[in-house]
């Protein structure tokens, strides 16, 4: 464990609490893509199957349980408790265009040809693009509530912090995970546009609005 990864994980945790806070305080999931949240739940469930047979650390175990539980809880909130506030007509990204290529990539790039390893690879590729329905929705509506942008910023910061973590691990542990690194770089790159608007507008106290 190094500080980059620790702060990355904490930022990931924070993003989930911000999202829950947004839903509870506005009593609405307006502006949140159900598809992205469903993809994240899929990512956590397919990646953390090793919860049942591999012990890494108490930290690792607790975080995995938390990520699976919180993502399922968010799906419940969106699908049942706050269902009327979710508008599927603007959440129109075709997730099959993401799922299909991720299955193919996992079949091509994996460390071992076994069910858990294929699912692990699949989850890594899927996580890289899971934010796309959310960003697509943002692009369509052209604006976002400030708290929603804080959620996205925390999520993007988590990915960005994993990059120095990998560089650090390369030098200190002689370890490189090419699949995670490639997917992670792509994932972080997807946030660049968002970060630009976040830093130049939201953090200056303005509303998140995309130029027409």
């Amino acid at each position: 464990m190094n500080l980059f990864r620790l702060f990355g994980d904490l930022s990931h945790l924070a993003s989930i609490f911000i999202l829950l806070q947004k839903i509870q305080s506005t009593r609405s999931c307006r502006g949140i893509s159900f598809k992205t949240q469903a993809l994240y739940a899929t990512v956590f469930i397919t990646r953390y199957l090793d919860l049942f047979y591999e012990w890494v650390s108490l930290y690792n175990f607790t975080m995995k349980v938390f990520f699976i539980a919180s993502s399922c809880y968010i799906l419940y909130l969106m699908k049942y408790k706050y269902r009327p506030t979710h508008d599927p007509s603007i959440d129109t990204f075709r997730v099959e265009y993401l799922l299909g290529p991720c299955v193919v990539l996992a079949l091509l790039f994996h460390y071992k040809f076994s069910i858990p390893e294929l699912l692990w690879s699949f989850s890594i590729f899927l996580e890289a693009v899971a934010i796309l329905p959310q960003l697509f929705m943002l692009q369509r509506t052209g604006e976002a509530e400030t708290i929603t942008t804080h959620y996205l910023a925390a999520l993007g910061a988590y990915r960005a912090l994993y990059i120095p973590n990998w560089i650090y691990r390369y030098f200190t542990e002689d370890m490189v995970d090419p699949i995670a690194v490639t997917a992670g770089l792509v994932q972080t790159a997807l946030y660049l546009d968002f970060f630009y608007v976040y830093f130049t507008k939201v953090l200056q106290g303005q509303k998140f609005e995309l130029p027409a």
Binding site: V56, N60, F67, D174, M175
Partner: peptide, 10 residues
């Protein structure tokens, strides 16, 4: 030689 990646990240 590089160590084999272990799935110890989240």
């Amino acid at each position: 030689p590089l160590a084999e990646p272990k799935h110890d990240e989240l």
